[in-house]
Nucleic acid binder design. Structure first.
Length: 262
DNA sequence: ATGGTAGGTCTCCTA
């Protein structure tokens, strides 16, 4: 069987309900993982999603901040969540498909403005969050698993619009890139987006603050699709749905897609 | 070097 999965930081699921439905209608991924829902689970507007065939949902929510959800046309089993770094934030949820594939949906802390944990607590929390992900995957090697989400790190030089200019900007500092690599290595995760699109600039996020985000194109690849090596060979067709960044009342992130033949 | 926009909630925090 073949299924297509997408991940999208939507920056408020309630405000963005129309364009979430637009994506579901036009692209029809079997599974859509959302981050920054900014909503308690019981206030996520599920009816419109259900009407489009997305009858299965697992989610973690809180008022105003964070929040992650997995919408699916395929049956899902709730596989729980973990409070990484004990922040008390809704930043992770997991679900299992009937074919035994585990899906982890993450919203890694952004980390504040200053890349120094001594003066910026949020940066320390981001590193702690990644360290616990690393430790969990090291202790219990994931199998037949897909990890997606807004990891808030652009690891490669061509994952940002200007590598040198961003070396001291949170999301692209060497300490973050190393922490992400350690997490990836600990679970033997394969970066599916870059497996499929190995060369050239690739972005999934453009700031709201740019005068013309499309023209300036000062993007970063913060949103990721990873898979364990036992299923990474089944992945293909990765793409970033850049046009969604230009839809009415857009998120500042674009959805990232991948297809798996399993 | 700086400030720029957006969302949620309750006056400012987070991204």
């Amino acid at each position: 069987m073949s299924f297509t999965l997408a991940t999208w930081n939507i920056n408020s699921v309630r405000l963005r309900e129309p364009i979430v439905c637009k994506l579901l209608e036009e692209e029809g991924p079997d599974v859509l993982c959302l981050q920054e829902c900014k909503s308690p689970v019981d206030k996520i507007p599920l009816e419109g999603f259900r009407a489009l065939g997305y009858e299965y949902i697992v989610a973690q929510g809180q008022k105003g901040y964070n929040g992650v959800a997995i919408l699916s046309k395929l049956p899902l089993k709730d596989a729980g969540s973990r409070d990484y770094a004990s922040l008390g934030h809704a930043r992770h949820v997991a679900a299992e498909l009937e074919n035994g594939v585990m899906i982890h949906n993450f919203y890694v802390p952004a980390g504040g403005d200053v890349p120094d944990r001594d003066v910026n607590e949020k940066f320390g929390q981001k590193l702690d969050y990644l360290a616990e992900m690393r430790d969990v995957f090291h202790a219990d090697a994931p199998k037949k698993s897909i990890l997606v989400g807004d990891l808030n790190i652009a690891p490669r030089e061509d994952d940002v619009w200007d590598h040198k200019k961003l070396l001291k900007v949170v999301s692209h500092t060497p300490v973050e890139v190393e922490a992400l690599a350690a997490t990836q290595d600990a679970g033997r995760w394969v970066d599916i987006t870059r497996q499929d699109i190995p060369l050239g600039p690739l972005y999934s996020w453009w700031s709201y603050r740019a005068r013309d985000w499309d023209d300036a194109d000062k993007g970063r690849r913060l949103d990721h699709v990873w898979a364990t090596s036992d299923i990474s060979g089944a992945a293909h067709g990765s793409r970033i749905h850049r046009v969604a960044r230009g839809w009415e009342k857009p998120s500042d992130h674009a959805p990232v897609f991948a297809t798996f033949d399993l």
